[in-house]
Nucleic acid binder design. Sequence first.
DNA 1: TGTTATACCAAACAAGCGTTTGTTTTAGGA
DNA 2: TCCTAAAACAAACGCTTGTTTGGTATAACA
Lengths: 203, 203
Amino acid sequence: MTTHTAPRQQRAPRQDNRRQPLLDAAAALFRTRGFHAVTMREIAREAGMLAGSVYYHFSSKDDLLVSVYEEGVRRITERVAEACQDAETPWAKLEAACCAHTEMLLDESDYAQVILKVMPEDVPSGQAQLIDCRDEYEGLFRDLVDALPLAASVDRTIFRLTLIGALNSARNWYRPGGKSPAEVAREIMKLMKNPLLKEGSQI
Amino acid sequence: MTTHTAPRQQRAPRQDNRRQPLLDAAAALFRTRGFHAVTMREIAREAGMLAGSVYYHFSSKDDLLVSVYEEGVRRITERVAEACQDAETPWAKLEAACCAHTEMLLDESDYAQVILKVMPEDVPSGQAQLIDCRDEYEGLFRDLVDALPLAASVDRTIFRLTLIGALNSARNWYRPGGKSPAEVAREIMKLMKNPLLKEGSQI
DNA sequence: TGTTATACCAAACAAGCGTTTGTTTTAGGA
DNA sequence: TCCTAAAACAAACGCTTGTTTGGTATAACA
């Protein structure tokens, strides 16, 4: 007697599938209010459905956050990698990367901004996954910094982390209408590249 | 017939008052896990009491957070202001301030670290209060930066915000055992003060 | 066109939340 | 020593949370 494994026929997703609007809503809410302050009912309502329906697409709130986070890293990685390729010198590559990074964080993508707002420790079940994502993205900048012609006395690790930290901190004070995100990024890089001292002054 | 307003006699707080242990517990928990992820029951248990008892000392969870936050700003302000006074030149003053700031954020005070972990928008009812606190503390750094002999092309506002942002970002990667907090702060300042370029290299 | 996996709704669930209430213990001042 | 305010307990309140369950409409494929 043969074992009848059910055919388990698979079908293409329907066109009216609302997984994407759901992710978008979650990204927007997580970005502005953080993981713990947002409820499944809010996310669902924003996507035009009920809370229970979300569980057809995601197994838990944590799972939903991880998906948003991964998509955020995917998008910013894509943009930054693309921006680097157009530049020629190591410094120009880094600058292009910083501009793209800052643009994503300051006005373009809810997804990318979730990366700054949500900390891995907020989601114990997916902590390792989020950290891996972040590390992979940071590796991009490690390569760019390693390629720079820096004085031997400069600690490249601290330089890299400080640069990214400085760019990210713009999120706390940037307001649209003044300098553009790219201008902010260039200004910050200028600070770290040029001497600040007034000519003739002593330290 | 005279109206007898009750004497309403006031007494000094008892010696076994546990308001302070309560604040300490709240500071430690808010710092590591954030405002929304921490419950009143946890805070109370950590301080050795029950959830309801907390409301004898604080009118709400929001109120408790605001108290912790204000105490954090008070402590870091005190330490930074004290550190500045010992230095002489503008740059030395700023460096002393940055070292003190970084020490508080990296290993000393749960209270000070709450300032980084909790965002004003987490507590709508006390948002304005938290922002005022933060602004007042930042004013300290504004004065220090304004006193620096900088090249005219440098945007002092962006310099100040970037410096603080860079220092604060160390919270994300600092690990005890390597460079001390003060060394990290000095390294970051060096990055923003000195030229990075290798001698003879082109941009 | 009929079948079925897809994608949702509607309603409930247990657990946990911040907070309130009424009562009890206890230390400080007369 | 007695009285009273301080400071806590014990237990509940109403509500919200993330999640589960059972049912139902419908688009996709045979």
